[in-house]
Design a protein around this nucleic acid. Structure first.
Lengths: 346, 346
DNA sequence: CGAAAGGATGACAGCGCTGTCTTCTGTAGC
DNA sequence: GCTACAGAAGACAGCGCTGTCATCCTTTCG
């Protein structure tokens, strides 16, 4: 079983291989009718261009490189699925590379990677999309990239995001509507910019409701389960304990749940907990977490589309559509949030 | 920044590109001293062969294809990390493709994939490694593959595994040592063969201790969290409720925990729960799960090594070492298992 | 000491595609 | 009807590597 090549297609369509190449790459100057014949042949033979050959022939390979350093496996798997699907249909290859954001040689390593594999563009997942030096270097070298939930929603560079500030605000409104007034907040990784917008939403809600913000209620986590436990313990040992804790991702919320249960505190009777992301962990823990659902997979899919558009534009090829996509989130209500009234008697 | 090519290396070492190629691929018939010079040049230039070019030039590409259809994200991420690391050092590319085990065209799709990308070999993760028709087709077409925790530990084909039967038995011994005698068991996905060995360990332990096996205590799960909830409910609604439930993966154990807590049952006081795999979820739930730790990442790493050995052997190249690896497991004790004595009074 | 055998090395084609340059075709304008 | 010109299509080199085959250098042994 040998895969059909561009020659097979050309032969069948009665054109030269170059014309097939033009059609496949949607280049200009091909008559409608010729293009149709080629497309027909492609379909009949089930032809797919050979990635290795393309990569070798083009100055830049048809390769998308996903960079990550994210402690949440569930998040990354969703991203991966989205990227894989998008690259599949776009006939791009995927390169997946873990990186240490705090590594001193990060920028060099990435640049080496790009040169080595002649990568067409990068998908930066948080917190890498907020690595200033990295982004600066990419811009300087004119390397295309797309960010997922970046801190700076720079209109010049492709990105996908949800409105984190509003989402966080919505979740706060929900907590407030259930009667909570003393709400703890666990910040995300300091290098992860989008997380800071979640804090803004928290603050916004306080301001709107005329509630003073107690800085002691704001803890700094790292997006990891362990950091959630730690922050949870700290907040729960406060003299005036919060009646609810809003963690800026699900993993940390799970940590809070753990910490609360260690202390014999029932959720949601003794403490309400909310998360963010709606990764599978939000369902797995007991009680299920009330959280904000991000359409991670769709976002990753969209990110690749934006990236490819941006690459095509740079090389002067046809590319319709925006290089920025805003997605809708959703408040998912499970059983981890109750009313604080039940708590007070204790 | 242009990556060095084989010509650069050849020039620096004062040999032809073919000799460099020989050294890189560890082919025979290169004088020690020449080889050393080439290796030196490679190191100095930080040369890495261009995958695309290799792939194009060889009948089979330097590409490992990981096939999966596994409901556990955490499991897959660990596998992925292991595979990525191994391929990185072996200078192989990685292709990651989700498949539906139950899909009717599975075999065709895989074969197409292999032809399309001229894949060198496949890494089959459970339950795909137990897909009879697929394995048969691969053998028939002489396509190299390695299985992770397959059902049939066929000595002819590369695989990596732990001793599931003994591991399961060890866990059972632990439960029995804590005084449990009525222990529920949740089987894994019926298509996942290794899971059946976990059941054997469960049965072995019963036999050794002269305890009759109550078939009603054996439930059939699918390795998913949801199936764990269902099976958990079913077992807990039994007239003679088990004092412990052993689920054959962590996701299902988390489901049992969920089901128990829904019913107001405390773990471990009212019910003991044990899992299998020690994926992160085992730490995330409360209480943390007592479970069997599989070195998943190392296993995946080893799997790729076995696969590459097997590929090299087939093409008559040097390849030392076995194509089979057995890994050690570990019983991880957390807080989800207690003694049933506390339960009885109720 | 010369020839045969075999190990070490190199020359060169070609993998499937893209980029560049060239050639051909159709059409507008006079 | 002829030229001028843009748009459509093709010829061909070459991307970086491997496979094949040719060539060279050693060794071995009669």
């Amino acid at each position: 079983m040998r895969a059909p090549t561009i020659h097979d297609v050309a032969g069948r369509a009665g054109v030269s291989i170059k014309t097939v190449s033009r059609v496949v790459n949607r280049e200009a100057n091909v008559r409608e009718q010729t293009s149709a014949r080629v497309l027909q042949a492609i379909r009949e033979l089930n032809y797919r261009p050979n990635l290795a050959a393309r990569n070798l022939a083009s100055p830049r390979a048809y390769l998308v490189n996903v960079l990550y350093d994210n402690p949440s496996d569930n998040y990354m798997v969703s991203v991966l699925h989205g990227v894989l699907a998008a690259c599949e249909t776009a006939h791009y290859g995927v390169l997946l590379t873990p990186f240490d954001v705090t590594g001193p040689r990060l920028v060099d390593l990435v640049l080496e990677m790009v040169a080595q594999h002649r990568v067409s563009g990068l998908v930066l997942t948080p917190p890498l999309c907020d690595h200033e030096a990295l982004v600066r270097a990419l811009n300087a070298d004119s390397i295309d990239y797309v960010s997922i939930s970046p801190k700076d929603e720079d209109r010049d560079n492709p990105f996908v995001a949800i409105d984190d500030r509003r989402a966080s605000h919505d979740l706060m409104e929900y907590l407030l509507s259930r009667g909570h007034r003393r709400i703890g907040f666990i910040k995300g990784h300091p290098l992860h910019g989008a997380a800071s917008r979640r804090l803004l939403g928290y603050l916004d809600a306080h301001a709107e409701h005329g509630i003073a913000v107690d800085q002691r209620l704001i803890a700094s986590g790292l997006f990891s389960f362990e950091s959630g436990i730690e922050c949870g313990r700290r907040l729960l040992h406060l003299r005036e304990r919060p009646t609810a804790i809003f963690a800026s991702n699900d993993d940390m919320a799970a940590g809070v749940l753990h910490a609360a249960q260690e202390m014999g505190l029932k959720v949601p009777d003794g403490l309400s907990v909310a998360g963010y992301d709606d990764t599978p962990i939000a369902r797995y823990v007991f009680p299920g977490l009330t959280t904000i659902r991000q359409p991670i997979r769709a976002m990753a899919h969209g990110a690749v589309e934006c990236l490819i558009r941006s690459i095509r534009k740079r090389s002067g090829l046809a590319a319709e559509g925006s290089v920025i996509q805003r997605f809708e989130y959703e408040l998912v209500i499970r059983n981890s949030v109750g009313s604080p009234a039940l708590t007070k008697p204790a």
